[in-house]
Design a protein around this nucleic acid. Structure first.
Lengths: 225, 225
DNA sequence: TTTTGTGAACTAGTTCACAGCT
DNA sequence: AGCTGTGAACTAGTTCACAAAA
């Protein structure tokens, strides 16, 4: 019944892991970083859940999906689990990111400290405006001509692109990104984008987020009602 | 067991509408805007689904949750449905938004055209740095002292706050926002935040988004593998 | 006819509860 | 004793499929 430890290691290698699960792994990693900074050596799923408003069973299930990282009667060793999570999330190497669009948003994202934190390096900005090309962000990220995307992406070892261009050019820019061989894209433009299989697109839709808040306010679920 | 018809009429007024559903309403609204701009007068759920990669049954279910907006044999009148969706989402009035933090990200969000589009007005930025207070964003949004939040929020009729401050001050700023009577918050800072009941918090976690892409790349689900 | 609105069936995700390990 | 890892139970969300309306 019980699979060997070797088998447990590669298990699930073929099933699709839910995005909800992987998102939570990021959250767990952040919690563990806080615990480690506070000098905590070991933590139970229950303690983790209590402290960060999570569900203990869910933490255990999420982790167990990738291996047996816990010790019964003890919990999880913080450092140890951190290392495993970083490895699972692919954060054990430094991923290089390009930002498409050197407008307000693109420039802000290029210098956003949160990105640099967990092993991401913003290596390049791309724009099509003459006057921007050759400049750099305040933090020193160089702005390249978007026509040089393929060349620069290869040279700089870019593996993730962030789309921060206006909605009307988003699809065109995405096509260029895909053509340059980049396989993972974080999109900030609103609307539907076409993406070929084998490329991962994750969208952050600010309009939808704001409208969701508007809906909440409109319902009158607010305050004393 | 069965509830009365009367109850069915005011149906769902008490149940919690899923956030997934309301997010999709935003998406439908955007699609309808595109159709309207293209001169389309009427659209079936199937046509809408085909064009924007949605599921027809889901569109109908989502809409039916709020009323009977369709005409059998015809579909939905684009203008008509647009009006209903805008009303459901509370976009029939102009909501005023404050952005907390006049750093790179805050300033970029203040001038982000996508926010202005669907009836949101960015009315104010707030910061605690002397040299920023009294200035304004490129687009002309004034920067106020965060200590004046309560006063300015009331005067300007702010109903939504966007948190774009560093992680370490996010909780403090959120507490100020809540104390000023604002009931809906869009948060860009990473990490866990405590929020009292009756206030809606929606978080956009850029680190989690990027790490999710990293996970995808790390798995090797890419390309020919 | 066409297409909606919706119960029923199905699928995905979460939480419970406990056997079994340390 | 304490806590993990995990089937079973439950809850939420999606899709099917069809009666009823235009």
């Amino acid at each position: 019944m019980k699979t060997s430890n070797k088998a447990a290691r590669t298990r699930h290698s073929l099933d699709q892991v839910s995005e909800l699960t992987t998102n939570r792994l990021s959250v767990y990693l952040r919690c563990l970083n806080l615990l480690d900074a506070a000098g905590t050596r070991t933590v139970s799923s229950q303690a983790l859940a209590d402290q960060f408003h999570l569900n203990a069973a869910q933490i255990r299930k999420d982790l167990a999906y990738f291996g047996e990282f816990g010790v019964r009667g003890v919990g999880y060793y913080v450092r140890d689990l951190t290392r495993h999570l970083r490895q699972i999330l692919g954060l054990d190497r430094r991923l290089r990111v390009a930002i498409m669009g050197a407008g307000n948003l693109g420039l802000a994202l290029a210098d956003y400290p949160g990105f640099r934190q967990e092993g991401f390096a913003i290596a390049a900005l791309f724009d099509n405006l003459r006057e921007k090309v050759g400049q750099q962000s305040r933090g020193g990220v160089p702005i390249h001509d978007i026509h040089d995307l393929r060349k620069v992406a290869r040279r700089e070892g870019i593996s993730i692109a962030v789309i921060a261009v206006p909605a009307e050019s988003a699809q065109h820019v995405l096509d260029l990104v895909v053509a340059s061989g980049i396989k993972a894209v974080l999109n900030f433009s609103p609307g539907t984008l076409e993406i070929p299989p084998g490329v991962k697109l994750k969208s952050v839709d600010l309009t939808v987020s704001l409208e969701s808040l508007s809906f909440y306010l409109a319902r009158g679920d607010v305050d004393g009602v």
